[in-house]
Design a protein around this nucleic acid. Structure first.
Lengths: 166, 166
DNA sequence: TCATTCAGGACCAAGCCAGTCCTGTTTTGG
DNA sequence: CCAAAACAGGACTGGCTTGGTCCTGAATGA
């Protein structure tokens, strides 16, 4: 596999959107602005709140706001928040030795290096790096017909989740 | 998710085992030596053959052999062979624009950087790097009771596929 | 000619993810 | 004080993917 969950993709979209405006934004408003279904936006934001990436304000006039600037949120944090700690296989360092043949396994402990390399790569890229630099408030599509806007589907509804390039 | 499929883990085990001996090895022999179920070994080796990582010899006295040394096989190639090209999301470079709202998507084209970073990391690690250096022929468990040897289960049969560390 | 071994699918069960919904709880505003 | 707005936290289900097995066919060597 080695592919991200859709929720992670949604999370990045939602967080980047949150980064466009420091005022409190409701889940419904973000859904309208991004095209992501509202229940899904709410789900993502709840996870992000638990992870401490966003702050929430309950009650009427409540909403969400980034807990820190986009540049301080590495992609790895978003992935970890949604998918759990990044561990390509069970045989990574610090994991309990659940291999029932750790003495036999010829690659014992060797996935650590791969895992660390990926973790490093993902820790070095922040959400700010994923925001198109030329995108400013003026270029946002006017929300005159939010319900008629094209919906954002990260993987294409009728195609396989992961595109097979090359 | 961001976890490897079990088949990929098996593939590394099988390939490293193949690298221990340049003579032709049968799928059954590899299964006995590694503890991986024989049908699964066969499946993995067929995929590896198609990918060109191993050479096969059909017929009686046939078997498999590495097509190139372990040091010339990056982990990325193994993953690509089993899971298809590494593409975290559908929004990676070269993929068809199947997002039905590419104009809206605020992270359009920005997963490329993440994807490239991971690809680079995986391309820089070879199977030789995953072979325990101190493991030589003498340290191999004697195959006197191959059927009684502990089986290799990369993720632990009774636990979740990916260990949640920390 | 026969046993051995790989080739290439088809196939099925199990597990996981995505997405929705429902019921609280908190806060604002009239 | 009440009602509406908005988040909190689960439960639930349908669909998809993966894992693992098996079966038939082709090639090779004895």
């Amino acid at each position: 596999m080695l592919k991200l969950s859709k929720l992670t993709d949604y999370a990045v979209v939602v967080l980047v959107r949150l980064g466009d405006d420091f005022a409190l934004q409701t889940s419904g408003g973000i859904a309208a602005a991004t095209g992501v279904p509202e229940p899904t936006v709410a789900k993502v934001l709840k996870i992000m709140t638990t992870a401490g990436l966003v702050c929430s304000q309950r009650g009427a006039r409540g909403g969400y706001r980034l807990a820190k600037p986009l540049s301080a949120i590495p992609v790895a944090d978003v992935i970890t928040a949604i998918d759990g700690p990044i561990a390509l296989t069970a045989c990574v360092e610090h994991s309990p030795a659940i291999c029932d043949s750790s003495a036999l396994c010829p690659v014992k402990g060797r996935w650590d290096r791969v895992n660390s390399a990926i973790l490093d790569a993902l820790s070095g890229i922040s959400l700010a790096d994923m925001r198109p630099p030329e995108r400013d408030a003026l270029s946002v599509v006017p929300m005159t017909e939010a319900s008629a806007m094209p919906s954002y589907h990260p993987a294409g509804a009728s195609v396989s989740t992961t595109a097979f390039v090359e």
